[in-house]
Structures are given as structure tokens and as C-alpha cells.
Amino acid sequence: MLITPPRGTVRFHVSMTFTPGGPKVEGTWEAEESAVNRFRGFIGTHGSDDVTITLWAEADGIRRRLRTWTKDHGDASRRAVGGLRSSPAGVSARGM
């Protein structure tokens, strides 16, 4: 059985890709703080070579990339679009 979150619900995803186009792991959190902590934790434990770590926000089935980390470029924050906007910490939240 598929469970669809109610409209307007924001979920946060962290993905870690080991090589470009290669395998990845991903997790989903309801709490933004938990997802940010996992994003930072992955950088500390797996941040090397070809690894790319990305934090996403998803609302109404649309994903917005919030932050991406690579060894060459470090932590790059992005301004979110369409109902999600960046907070001073560089992580987005709805309705701020």
C-alpha cells in the first residue's frame, strides 16, 4: 500500500552518491533538523573523493535541492524556489 503525504507536507531527503552515476543511499526525514544532522554526519564519515552528498526538500511531490557537498567544492547552499525559501542557516523551510 502506498502512503501519500498530505498536500503541503515538507519532507527532507539526504542522498549520498559514491561515484558519478553510480550507486547511492538515501534517507527521508520529517524533521528538517534531523536531515541537516544526517547531511553533516555523512560529510564527516563519508566525505571523500567522488562522493556527493545532497540535502533536498520535497513538498507537493516537487524536490528542491538545498545543499550539496563535494570534496572539490565543499558545502554549496542553494536558494530554494516555489514556496520554500532559504533561512539564515542556508536550509529551507516552508512559510518562514
Rank of each mutant, 00 (worst) to 15 (best):
R78K: 09
A35P: 00
T9N: 01
T68W: 08
P5F: 01
I62V: 04
E58P: 06
A59M: 08
A89F: 02
A76I: 04
R65L: 01
F42N: 06
R38P: 00
G21H: 01
M16A: 14
G82T: 12
E33D: 09
W29I: 00
T52Q: 10
E26V: 12
H13C: 13
I62R: 14
G27M: 06
L55M: 13
T17A: 01
R11F: 06
R63P: 00
D49C: 02
A89K: 11
R78T: 14
T68Q: 08
N37G: 09
R11Y: 13
V36D: 07
D72K: 08
T9L: 02
A31Q: 10
V10P: 04
S48Q: 05
I43A: 07
R85M: 02
V10S: 04
G21C: 13
I62F: 09
G8S: 06
R11I: 13
L66A: 10
G27Y: 03
T17N: 01
T45Q: 14
A59C: 07
T9Q: 13
E58N: 11
A76T: 14
V10Q: 11
A59W: 08
G8W: 10
N37C: 12
E32T: 02
F42L: 09
R11L: 13
G27S: 15
T68M: 04
T52G: 00
P23K: 03
G82Q: 11
T9Y: 06
A57H: 04
L84G: 03
I53E: 08
V14E: 00
W29V: 00
G47Y: 13
V36T: 15
A89I: 02
G22N: 06
E58K: 07
H13V: 04
V10Y: 12
D75H: 03
H73K: 11
D50P: 06
R11H: 08
G41P: 09
T68L: 12
G27P: 00
A31N: 11
I43P: 15
L55P: 03
D60E: 07
P5R: 10
G8Y: 03
V14C: 00
P88R: 02
R40S: 02
D49F: 11
S15T: 08
L84A: 06
D72S: 03
T70L: 06
D72N: 11
T45N: 04
R65T: 05
S34F: 14
T52K: 13
D60V: 12
A35I: 01
S48E: 05
W69Y: 05
R64P: 00
G27E: 04
P20F: 02
V81A: 13
K24R: 07
G61N: 01
R85Q: 07
V14Y: 02
A31D: 09
S48H: 05
W29F: 13
G22E: 12
S87L: 06
T28R: 10
G74S: 08
S77M: 15
G82Y: 11
F39W: 03
P20T: 06
T54G: 15
H46A: 14
R67C: 09
D60Q: 05
A76H: 15
R78W: 14
K71F: 15
K24I: 06
R40I: 05
T68V: 07
